[in-house]
Write a protein that binds this DNA or RNA. Structure first.
Length: 596
RNA sequence: GCACCCGUAGUUCAGCUGGAUAGAAUAUCAGACUACGAAUCUGGGGGUCGGAGGUUCGAAUCCUUCCGGGUGCGCCA
């Protein structure tokens, strides 16, 4: 069953369409009801009504002064038989429409309380319904740091958003488990003669050797450098020979890395349906080069092979080096083909940092030239890097903020606040609350900014928890749940899903109205955030909804309202708020604690 | 040199397919707990939306150009 996302706006647009049509006898404008739906906007200030319609476009087509058109439309709308319109005020060329708040409440609150509001199937039914979201894509043998976290937050949120909207989503990871960086790491590890001590995080332990190796290589010169390079090259072929001591060591250490990543994914709640590995597509990438060389998509140039994309201002995409080895881009072609064949996907999203913009434009264009119609449905969700106050972070340089140490310091800080509940709450609850707050603060920090923007990571700011932050939203949730618990103690309960249909609403205060409107708009915002691949859009809506709630909270008494009926109505409203907030936070990967 | 991204209060950012007096947060100043949780709320000050042209009834938003910052541009991933 499809439920209209915005019944009020739908009604208004058809009513306005009717009025315009009667004004416009000869149908000179040619607007449709859907066009008017798009023209109806939310006024800048709340006291200017719930919806506003600028009438310039109609005025121009009808050759009538804009304010006059607005006045005529206002008159028609005022004769509203549906009960949606409370009053209409015109300001110059604008028609400001005030909605019957109680009707708005009745149209959304019961659905929120019963949960049906959160299962609106808004995705297009037949086409493009299967979406693959590839994210994280870490290199093994390196340590996971805050930069990698942004990717994971974005990707796992997109997975949830698309699922919510009714798409069939495949969440995919793609591990870089091959290449020179691994040989360097193993070279240094062997050279040091060390073994990981018992109980240590082996993934992180391994990452340190990679950093040490690049340092050693940067420092070395002349014969020494040549010697090291020969050793590393030897290790590389050892790994690729698929047997022998280097291959065994590769396989063992690779597992350490993968285990470390998987435990982080589990901790932050990131899920994958399919893991791809570079090592699993490298052979296939060789086949692709041969195949498309024959088909004329690739050509030879200076002993190497690649696609000439000069016609598209994308340069030359190298697919096979002179030494016969394929490259990262070639493997991406092989992987894409596998995705198309194995999963029959028709939309493919790659969550990768913006330094790879050029790479993906080349890959997608080449896929198109290779004859894959799905190439046009490939999207690179490019995001800005996480940088430190004093510049870029890099695994090579070793100036990163490792995730595990960051997490520990945040948890420590949180325990300073939460330990006051010791004795009152179980240790387990304190522990779980700290974890939820930590994850909430980190994820919200990562997602509230527009993906295209760079994020400056300053530990002090992220621990301050003030303003537009995850903890603010989680606090709003905890506060609400606290009132509802308290209400239950004195015998007051929100409406149950079954009886809520017959309840009467009396929405009075401005802040109460604002809160209601934010709940009402939730699904529209989620849909926009999904289509634009921008969880930040949802974050800012949730933030505004919480501000409305906190304002409402100080303005309007709930448990001390005049009558039992009003207490019940307001309890239901704030419960609807809490449910909407929990749903929205869930879509950005955050689970709020019930109290904090 | 070429391509792409970014440039909005001191700082960090919203601003949806062009719409009304450009909004928050933070910092700062001044207020509100015997109260349903002050991790909260209320109010003040703070802006030539990088500059200049153009399109339009209307531009932070679209186009051109310049300036500033970032990223990338064939044998790395």
């Amino acid at each position: 069953m499809t439920i209209q996302l915005d019944p009020c706006k739908s009604y208004l647009s058809s009513a306005i369409f009717g009025a315009i049509s009667s004004l416009d006898g000869g149908d000179q404008i040619g607007v449709k009801s859907e066009d008017i739906f798009g023209m109806l906007e939310k006024p800048r200030q709340d006291d200017m009504g719930d919806f506003a319609l600028p009438c310039f476009r109609f005025a121009k087509a009808l050759k009538i002064a804009p304010p006059k058109v607005a006045a005529t439309l206002a008159e028609c709308l005022a004769k509203d038989p549906s009960g949606w319109v409370a009053r209409v005020v015109t300001v110059n060329a604008f028609c400001n429409i005030y909605i019957n708040k109680n009707k708005m409440a009745a149209s959304i609150i019961p659905d929120v309380l019963s949960g049906t509001a959160f299962s609106y199937p808004v995705a297009p039914k037949n086409s493009h319904a299967r979406v693959m979201v590839e994210y994280s894509q870490p290199n093994t043998h390196k340590e996971f740091h805050v930069g990698h976290l942004r990717n994971v937050c974005l990707g796992s949120s997109l997975v949830k958003l698309f699922r919510y909207c009714g798409y069939d989503v495949v969440a995919a990871n793609y591990f870089g488990d091959e290449g020179a960086h691994i040989a360097k790491c193993l070279w240094m590890m062997k050279k040091s003669g060390k073994q990981p001590p018992a109980g240590v995080d082996k993934g992180a332990w391994l990452g340190e050797f990679y950093v040490a190796a690049t340092r050693a290589l940067d420092k070395a010169e002349g014969d020494e450098l040549a010697g090291i390079e020969a050793e590393i090259s030897n290790i590389l072929s050892g790994i690729e020979s698929k047997s022998g001591p280097w291959h065994d060591l590769w396989r063992e250490t690779r597992t350490w890395s993968l285990d470390a990543y998987k435990s982080i994914y589990q901790w932050v709640g990131a899920e994958f349906d399919r893991d791809f590995f570079e090592s699993e597509v490298s052979r296939e990438s060789q086949v692709i080069v041969e195949e498309y060389l024959k088909k004329g998509v690739f050509k030879e140039d200076q002993g190497a092979v690649g696609a000439d994309l000069a016609d598209y201002k994308l340069g030359f995409m190298l697919a096979r080096k002179r030494d016969g080895n394929t490259l990262y881009a070639t493997k991406d072609l092989a992987l894409a083909r596998r995705k198309f064949d194995e999963f029959k996907i028709d939309r493919s999203i790659y969550v990768v940092a913006n330094e790879q913009n050029h790479h993906f434009r080349q890959v997608f264009k080449t896929l198109e030239l290779m004859g894959f119609p799905q190439a046009t449905k490939c999207v690179h969700l490019s995001y800005g890097m996480v940088v430190l106050p004093d510049g870029k972070m890099s695994s090579r340089a070793g100036n990163t903020v490792p995730f595990m140490t960051l997490k520990e310091s945040i948890l420590q800080e949180l325990h300073l606040i939460l330990d006051k509940y010791k004795g009152d709450w179980s240790d387990e609850e304190i522990h779980e609350t700290a974890k939820r707050l930590c994850i909430g603060a980190l994820k919200y920090g990562m997602l509230q900014a527009d993906p295209a923007r760079e994020i400056v990571f300053d530990l002090k700011d992220w621990l301050s928890f003030e303003g537009n932050t995850g903890p603010y939203l989680m606090y709003s949730y905890a506060r609400t749940m606290s009132i509802i618990r308290k209400a239950a103690e004195s015998g007051h309960k929100p409406w149950s899903a079954e009886e809520s249909q017959k309840f009467k609403f009396t929405i009075e205060a401005a802040s109460e109205h604002e809160l209601l409107r934010a709940i009402y708009d939730f699904n529209t915002v989620v849909l926009e955030a999904t289509e634009q691949c921008r969880p930040s859009h949802l974050c800012s809506h949730l933030y505004n909804m919480c501000k409305s709630f906190n304002r409402f909270y100080t303005d309007v008494p709930v448990l001390k309202a005049d009558s039992a009926e009003i207490i019940r109505m307001r309890l239901s409203l704030i419960l609807a708020f809490a449910k909407t907030l929990r749903e929205g936070l869930g879509l950005v990967g955050i689970t709020p604690p019930e109290r904090m």
